[in-house]
Design a protein around this nucleic acid. Sequence first.
DNA 1: CGCAATAATGAGTCATTACTCGACTTGTGT
DNA 2: ACACAAGTCGAGTAATGACTCATTATTGCG
Lengths: 178, 178
Amino acid sequence: MVEGPPLRADAQRNRARILDAAEAVFAEFGARASTEEVARRAGVAIGTVFRHFPTKEELLAALMKRLLAQLAEEAGRHDLFGFFRHTVAQAAAKKTAVELLAGSGVDIRLPDAVGHLEEAVGRLLARAQAAGAVADSVRLPEVMALLAGMCQGALHGGWDEHLQARTLAVVFAGFERG
Amino acid sequence: MVEGPPLRADAQRNRARILDAAEAVFAEFGARASTEEVARRAGVAIGTVFRHFPTKEELLAALMKRLLAQLAEEAGRHDLFGFFRHTVAQAAAKKTAVELLAGSGVDIRLPDAVGHLEEAVGRLLARAQAAGAVADSVRLPEVMALLAGMCQGALHGGWDEHLQARTLAVVFAGFERG
DNA sequence: CGCAATAATGAGTCATTACTCGACTTGTGT
DNA sequence: ACACAAGTCGAGTAATGACTCATTATTGCG
């Protein structure tokens, strides 16, 4: 994480615009969408995208970092079950987050961002266990695995609201009894 | 499903070889792998692949059909929990099955093959409920959703044996208690 | 201002890939 | 054995997409 001199004002504006466009485009078409489409939606030339993010992977990584940070922050506003519902419901909208949280196609290292999310979920788990809502035998890794799996399932399977509720109900019952 | 005249002997051989090669190649590289790689591995020219499967999608669909039929057949040799364990363990190996069972990237209609698999799993569910191993409130759609989600999760998350066991344990506990 | 340094532009390059097609080979029925 | 339909071959085509770079524009500072 080497920080060079601060960016010029226009460069900052464009960087943010590109990330916003990338979020929208990749949410709509998945990670296969072209970099040109991102540039078009951001209203900048293709070269500008590559100036800020020298490869497509780095663009995806930067976007992913932002999305994971956002998730970790949102975790603070929910209990464990609520966070599951919220995250799974958003899965389809934030296609990329899910695709990449998983590493599908492109592989990217984001230890920090993933770590922060894990910490946040860990706190929710501890609280839920202290309240007796989740069995003590349940550990963080399987909680993360189920979160990822449910997001993937919802995304690719196109679950409706009802199916999502029923499916999560099974998972929550499993949490309750270990 | 129009059946033309029977294929010539060499054509049958090549068709099978291509499907085998496709299974191996797509399992290794995902659906992004090139058709040429499949041809190379099958030991035929690229034109031959396209004679049998006029588009890449049709190749994927044919492969998918075979994999789903195989899964449906394997269901007969397991109870519900065993089938989950078996299928999830194979998820990584049969990357394609999972990617496509979900429809990631390419969309394909395989109502028959999916229907057969659902019927097979439905029988396992009914038997498990009759034996009291699964709560009566659990229905087939969420069982299929969880199967798909767990396969996705295992595939993309790279679960090890231990994590897989712990994760499935939570799901099974959920089945037990509804 | 004026002048570097920094950034934006966008036509072009190169690699990849799905798919075509005309020349050639092989299986099969008679 | 022969003819011909069925099948195979693989160089070629066209589209796409990641990335480059010489040129032009903007910004911020003294």
